[in-house]
């Protein structure tokens, strides 16, 4: 293999239409999709020989912990930095995620995911960021394991991309924020606000919008057991609804 052949879906801004651009760059061993995009911007000439603007993309850690570089690569949503070129069929087709507004080229606006974290009260309430000379209550190794699973969610959006219920016609909050809501309510003091979190997930766009397609749990790069959280929250929400009805 002497060349790397790229087909990239581009877009100049949120309101302009998409178009395709093709590039060929010399092959080098151990390239990943980010290092290819970096090589490309040094010499951004497409196959037609036109010098074009370098492709715009988001990047951060380059080691699959920050979630920034998520895009659709040969049809699969994943992190570009940990996708090795040697494992991909050519031409390599890069597209921006489709469940978020495109900012430019491969860069999308995932702000709705962060807004959702606000909505589900995605934090533990503390009196202040100073020492009160005690730790939080103990956590069993088993609970720790469950919590740690979810606390590695890097808000990358892969699960949102593949969820059939997350789309422009629905308000569904999506799997990742549900997982986070569960995480905070499974903390020994975080559970003080479990009710508030459940209520945030009970109305329109909430937990009942999940169609249980299981796509989310299969795609998550961190193998977070999203459907477990969805099931547990679903159960708790039903109980909460009954409580709300009878204890008013």
């Amino acid at each position: 293999m002497q060349e790397i052949h790229l087909k990239i879906q581009r877009q100049d801004g949120p309101d302009s239409g998409p178009y395709w651009d093709e590039f060929k760059i010399p092959y080098r061993p151990q390239h990943n999709v980010i290092s290819v995009l970096m090589a490309l911007r040094e010499h951004p000439v497409n196959v037609k020989g036109e010098r074009v603007a370098p492709v715009v993309y988001e990047v951060g850690c380059m080691e699959e912990v920050c979630g920034a570089c998520t895009m659709i690569i040969n049809g699969k949503v994943r992190q570009a930095c940990s996708t090795l070129v040697d494992t991909l069929a050519q031409p390599i087709v890069l597209r921006p995620m489709t469940k978020f507004r495109v900012v430019r080229d491969l860069m999308v606006d995932r702000q709705p995911m962060f807004d959702a974290l606000r909505k589900v009260r995605g934090w533990i309430d503390i009196d202040g960021g100073y020492d009160i000379h005690v730790h939080a209550p103990r956590i069993s190794p088993k609970d720790w394991e469950k919590n740690y699973d979810f606390s590695r969610c890097m808000t990358c959006g892969c699960c949102m991309e593949v969820c059939p219920q997350v789309n422009t016609r629905s308000q569904f909050i999506g799997p990742a924020p549900v997982g986070q809501a569960w995480l905070f309510s499974n903390h020994p003091t975080g559970k003080y606000y479990k009710e508030e979190r459940l209520h945030a997930l009970m109305g329109p766009g909430g937990i009942t919008d999940c169609g249980n397609a299981q796509n989310c749990v299969r795609i998550c790069p961190k193998e977070i057991k999203l459907t477990d959280a969805i099931a547990r929250i679903g159960r708790d929400a039903t109980i909460q609804a009954l409580k709300d009805l009878f204890l008013k």
């Binding site: 934090w123 533990i124 503390i126 960021g129 009160i132 939080a136 956590i139 069993s140 720790w144 003091t189």
Partner: peptide
């Protein structure tokens, strides 16, 4: 300790402490 109260998922010993 403050981080612990904020909910950091510190690894635990069998006894449940950090």
């Amino acid at each position: 300790r403050t981080f612990d109260r904020m909910g950091v998922t510190w690894s635990r010993t069998p006894e449940g402490v950090m």
